[in-house]
Design a protein around this nucleic acid. Structure first.
Lengths: 195, 195
DNA sequence: TTTGATTTTGAGCGGTTGTTCAATATAAAA
DNA sequence: TTTTATATTGAACAACCGCTCAAAATCAAA
């Protein structure tokens, strides 16, 4: 042991994540990154190996942060379904201006990249599947509490909600009308909720 | 008049569209384009002004082609709703391997670009809105033929279908399971169709 | 056949890309 | 205080980017 890193790795990855989320993988140059995270090329490459390595950690960071938001909304509202709806509205509508992009970072990555970067693609797929699994868990709890129909398929419902959340974020960027999107969210949840 | 262009403009734009759709605006270099459309830089810039100009024509071409597919499915099936469902299944599932990307080219553009290219963004928004309008027309006809509830709102339903189609295409790239996606399409249409 | 407007060519411009690496700075261990 | 392993710096590399433009090729009109 002789010298110790001066930067806060977690904070560096967070800043990189925000920039990647805004501009995408190809749209973000290593010089943009150097400025934003205040590190020189040598340090970046010593710490993360490559632009792809840093992006990979940024993806994990993004996913962890989204999970935290979902957990937060789930615990402050005792109802599983209400938590899910609050999460959706919070991410798609409320945070639309403070988020670096209206799109989900994972979907943006899926859209931009292809099998030329197999590791990033596989990682992105894994993280999206993990979200589907979280939604499924919540919907199973909702079913036990009679919030949704006993005949509903929680896995399939989770997929439908994920599909709609992805679509709504694109729709939000296209139409920039939070009221319209909020109505669409109302409609989604009133169609699956038991009164 | 002294010399006449040797290239077929429509065919050139089509080839450019396929490449842009696959790789995105930033992911496609002008050298990639030169190869694919078999034109030299001088000719390209004389004909289209800039990479952005060619991309803009490619967007229009894409949108025209999608409209044709929708019209085709609508006329070969007399039922408006069945036409819409066939269109969705055709684009999202059947063509998943022959399409240059699972994603809608307009959504991919929306995802990749921002207000730094205001003309392209505005154009993309306009073309997406036009699709919503086409969906709305079809659903109004479906409503007159009692295929969907008389109390349904065709405009809102069109928005919901557009949102779901966008989301399903992303989901298709993430999960690569055509059966799952086909089931989701079944579910969407059986929930709005009157039997 | 000559003229002349138009199209096509491709070398090359200035700038940016992801990445490397020798030189320097740093701080824990001896 | 000296040693030494590690961290940081930033100049520089080769490749690539969107695009320009003078020169050559082309073909309808005269």
């Amino acid at each position: 042991m002789a010298n110790v890193a001066k930067y806060d790795r977690d904070e560096v990855v967070r800043k990189a994540m925000l920039l990647f989320w805004e501009k995408g993988f190809n749209g973000t140059s290593t010089r943009d990154l150097q400025q934003d995270i205040d590190m020189r090329p040598g340090s970046i490459y010593a710490a993360f190996g490559s632009k792809e390595g840093l992006f990979s950690e940024a993806l994990e960071y993004y996913s962890r942060e989204m999970k935290q938001i979902l957990d937060l909304r789930s615990t402050e509202l005792q109802s599983p379904l209400a938590g899910l709806e609050a999460f959706m509205r919070n991410v798609v509508v409320d945070r639309r201006d403070t988020n670096p992009s209206e799109f989900c970072m994972l979907v943006k990555t899926l859209s931009e990249l292809n099998e030329d970067q197999p590791e990033l693609m596989q990682q992105t797929r894994k993280l999206l599947k993990r979200t589907e699994d979280r939604f499924t868990d919540i919907l199973e709890r909702a079913q036990k509490q009679d919030e949704i129909s006993a005949s509903a398929n929680p896995r399939m419902l989770a997929q439908q909600l994920q599909v709609q959340m992805i679509g709504l974020r694109a729709f939000m960027k296209a139409n920039r009308n939070p009221n319209t999107v909020s109505e669409l969210i109302d409609s989604i949840f009133s169609s699956i909720r038991i009164h």
